[in-house]
């Protein structure tokens, strides 16, 4: 079949709301957009482990330590599942796990802005669960409708786990809000730190060409601004109910059209951080990933070699 005809048929399937499986024919552009999205998503899950893992060793109760350790484990698990999906899609390009992971260290794949930032107090560990995982749920709930069936299926499990993470974060945040003056101050400071980052989290008001293409292919189904509005609408009452202040004097909801108005984050600064890994913690976190991936390559090689030996013995 001619490529033009195939493309036409493919788009008809997409427009009819059909789901695409990994074994189906797909245009190169669709495959590349999926790789870009899923690779970035997977790597963000993995890089997201670092700001929180710092707090597992400092968690203030047995229960919190167990919960946070489990949460970080879940994030790595999501990263692993998503990378397997990205590996599968990347097979025609001859690229596997090693290459996809090298891309992080060589700056060829971005990760979410929030994971470039500092998490200097226990309250940050709570707020990451409460607000960042809460934001991720909003984005990922949209992706449940994705036209790429394996991604949508995987997200079902991921969203279910993220909602536990959000509840864990909320529970940490509630304990702080009900605590001493020092605990409340710690919480207020953390919310002030993460609010602008969450405004950036959903992307620019005017979406870039790849995001628009992803909408056409129904890989995603909502605009950046729709997602951000959903987040603000959900979190303004939650944060105020904690007795905390949102650090944006321009924040208000238009009573007629219910649209939230907000102060723009420093788009240029965050763009620079995400594109060039120049955030306050970007390099430190990349160094941790390098420790795991590069410095321990010898272990993976040894495992491969041992596998060969055992296979030969069995043969």
């Amino acid at each position: 079949m001619e490529d033009a005809q195939r493309f036409h048929d493919f788009m008809q399937r997409i427009e009819a709301g059909e789901k695409i499986e990994s074994t189906d024919w797909m245009p190169k552009e669709y495959r590349d957009l999926l790789i870009k999205q899923i690779h970035m998503h997977g790597i963000s899950e993995i890089m997201g482990a670092y700001p929180e893992k710092e707090w597992v060793t400092k968690a203030p109760t047995i229960r919190r330590k167990l919960a946070l350790n489990a949460k970080v484990q879940d994030e790595i698990g999501h990263g692993q599942m998503l990378l397997r999906l990205a590996e599968d899609l990347s097979r025609p390009y001859g690229r596997g796990r090693e290459e996809l992971m090298d891309d992080v260290l060589d700056g060829r794949v971005k990760f979410h802005n929030v994971f470039h930032l500092e998490a200097p107090t226990w309250a940050d560990a709570g707020v990451i669960g409460f607000m960042v995982d809460g934001g991720a749920i909003i984005t990922q709930a949209m992706l449940l409708e994705s036209s790429y069936a394996p991604y949508a299926r995987m997200l079902k499990r991921i969203v279910a786990e993220e909602s536990f993470h959000m509840q864990h974060g909320e529970s940490v945040v509630l304990a702080l809000a009900e605590g001493t003056e020092a605990q409340r101050r710690m919480l207020q400071d953390a919310i002030a730190r993460w609010w602008p980052a969450m405004m950036y989290f959903f992307g620019p008001r005017e979406m870039g060409p790849s995001s628009k293409k992803m909408m056409e292919y129904k890989i995603r189904t909502m605009t950046n601004e729709q997602l951000r509005q959903k987040f603000i609408n959900r979190y303004v009452p939650r944060i105020r109910a904690l007795g905390m202040v949102i650090p944006d004097p321009n924040l208000y909801q238009d009573p007629d059209d219910h649209v939230w108005h907000y102060t723009d984050p420093d788009w240029n600064w965050f763009n620079e951080v995400v594109h060039h890994n120049t955030g306050p913690m970007s390099q430190a976190r990349l160094a941790l990933r390098r420790q795991a991936h590069t410095e321990q390559r010898w272990v993976r090689e040894a495992a491969f070699q041992a596998g060969q030996v055992l296979q030969n013995q069995g043969a």
């Binding site: 482990a49 893992k53 941790l288 993976r300």
Partner: peptide, 13 residues
């Protein structure tokens, strides 16, 4: 827990 995110591969993590 200090090894979180630092094991030789994701599966071992």
């Amino acid at each position: 827990s200090e090894w979180l995110g630092l094991a030789p591969d994701l599966e071992e993590d």
